[in-house]
Simulated scan of single mutants.
Amino acid sequence: MTKQAKSGAIGLAAAAALAAMAGQAFAAQCGNSAAGYDAWKRQFADEAKGRVGPTAISALMNTHYAAATIAADRGQKSFRLSLDQFLAKRGGSAIVSRGRAFRQSHAALFASIEQRYGVPPGPLIAIWGMETGFGAVRGNQHMLSSVATLAYDCRRSAFFTDQLYAALQLIDRGQIAPDARGSMHGEVGQTQFMPKAVLQYGVGGDLNNAANALNSTANFLKAHGWRAGAGYQPGEPNFAAIQAWNAASVYQQAIALLGQKIDAGR
Rank of each mutant, 00 (worst) to 15 (best):
Y152M: 06
E131N: 06
G186R: 00
A66R: 02
R116V: 10
C30G: 09
A9K: 08
A20P: 01
D153N: 11
A14Y: 13
S7I: 15
A16R: 07
W226L: 10
V119D: 00
S78L: 09
A210S: 15
A16M: 11
Y152E: 05
F102D: 07
R138T: 09
K3R: 14
S183C: 09
A264M: 13
A56Q: 06
P123Y: 05
Q24N: 15
G202S: 06
G204W: 00
L60I: 08
T161K: 04
M184F: 15
A94D: 13
R42N: 08
P237Y: 05
E236Y: 10
S249Q: 14
I125R: 01
G36P: 02
L164E: 00
R227M: 15
A177I: 09
R90C: 13
A241G: 00
A254K: 01
I171P: 00
G23K: 07
Q175P: 07
G53T: 11
V96D: 02
K89V: 08
G135H: 07
L257R: 09
I255A: 00
A197R: 03
H224E: 13
K6Q: 11
S93G: 12
T191K: 03
Q252W: 02
W40N: 04
N209I: 07
A213D: 01
D46R: 12
N209E: 12
L87T: 02
P121Q: 05
P237N: 08
L150Q: 02
G75Q: 12
T217W: 03
A166E: 03
G91K: 03
A94K: 10
K41N: 12
G202D: 02
V137T: 13
G91D: 10
R51A: 05
A72D: 13
R100Q: 06
T55F: 12
K41I: 10
A28Y: 14
G235V: 08
Q29W: 14
Y165G: 02
L109H: 06
G186N: 03
F44S: 04
A247F: 10
V96R: 01
A148E: 00
G229T: 13
E236Q: 10
M184V: 15
A241Y: 01
H106Y: 15
A16P: 04
V203G: 05
G11R: 05
L87K: 03
